[in-house]
């Protein structure tokens, strides 16, 4: 089972996401200027990629901000669902951007032109700066992930590595297009590279869609996990009087299990609470991501 986030963890996560958002905002600004001041498919693709990153990180920041501010004793029902709906929205946005990138690339392949304009130089400078920033963040996160054996930090470090590779790729594409300008075929480098950026957006969109749709749709718990629930109930056979119902469902990585048990009416409330808590804990430990609710039944509920 994963350990719960503390309040200070949540606040530092909010600060980290906000800093990421500000960085993405600055990058989007520079990329927009570069795009306006140049004629390049790669810069258009880079603009959409950066814009999508900004939208995604802004939505994450708004969500975590709401969770942190909403700690006012009111339970935020459906926050998980909202997160997946937001992911679906980002996925849709990615699809639209992808279409625009592909259409623009096709137009430039059919009517090839060499990239030009001061925007190319702005973008080259931007890619160099961000490649170094992302390389620094990748190495920093990788070091911290290894020290803390944290999968979250590991994922974060991989994200920065991917971004750095993106920066180098765009830099290479722009550099080659400029350097090989005398050759007619070099005019195809730009649209071809934009299609590769489009492919990376497509892969990210497909990942988002499959994860979010799977998380939004409830489904039956796997047979192996149902057996685990029964095994734990058999292990605690003497702790309860009757088994009434077991209801379970899986929503993405989360598993919800409701068990209605009847306890010996001669038992004290404290004993019943302890027995119910023991059963709940043993099932939650046995099934990853499970949330177990033990309901108390009477003979009349049968």
């Amino acid at each position: 089972m994963s350990s719960p986030l503390t309040a200070s963890d949540s606040v530092s996560r909010e600060v980290a996401i906000r800093n990421g958002m500000l960085l993405a905002l600055l990058d989007t600004g520079i990329v927009t200027v570069a795009l306006v001041a140049a004629k390049s498919s790669v810069l258009l693709a880079d603009f959409f990629k950066t814009l999508l990153e900004l939208v995604a990180v802004t939505l994450s920041w708004l969500a975590i901000r709401r969770i942190n501010r909403g700690a006012n004793q009111q339970f935020e029902y459906g926050m998980g669902k909202m997160e997946h709906l937001v992911s679906l929205f980002v996925g849709l946005l990615m699809t639209v951007c992808l279409l625009l990138i592909v259409l623009n690339a096709l137009r430039n392949i059919l009517h090839p032109t060499h990239i030009a304009g001061v925007g190319i130089l702005i973008s080259i400078a931007d890619q160099i700066v961000y490649a170094f920033v992302n390389a620094f963040l990748w190495l920093k996160n990788r070091r911290e992930a290894r020290a803390a054996s944290s999968p979250l930090m590991e994922a974060q470090s991989k994200l920065f590595l991917t971004r750095m590779i993106g920066n180098v790729f765009i830099l290479l594409s722009l550099g080659l297009s400029m350097a090989l300008k005398p050759y007619a075929w070099a005019s195809y480098i730009d649209p071809a590279a934009s299609l590769m950026i489009g492919a990376s957006i497509l892969m990210a969109a497909m990942g988002l869609f499959s994860t979010s749709v799977s998380n939004l749709l409830d489904r039956t718990l796997e047979e192996s996990d149902q057996i685990v629930i029964l095994r734990e109930l058999a292990r605690h056979f003497d702790d309860y009087e009757s088994l009434h119902t077991i209801r379970s469902r899986r929503a993405g990585t989360e598993v919800f299990i409701d068990i209605l048990l009847e306890f010996d009416p001669e038992k004290k409330v404290g004993e019943i609470q302890k027995a119910a808590a023991d059963i709940r804990r043993s099932i939650e430990q046995a099934i990853r991501g499970s949330r177990v609710t033990i309901g108390l039944a009477t003979s009349a509920s049968a």
Binding site: Q226, I227, I229, A234, I246
Partner: peptide, 13 residues
């Protein structure tokens, strides 16, 4: 399957 096992667990009780 588990649905059948559940019947026996409840009946054993």
């Amino acid at each position: 399957v588990s649905a059948g096992l559940r019947v026996f667990l409840a009946f054993a009780k």
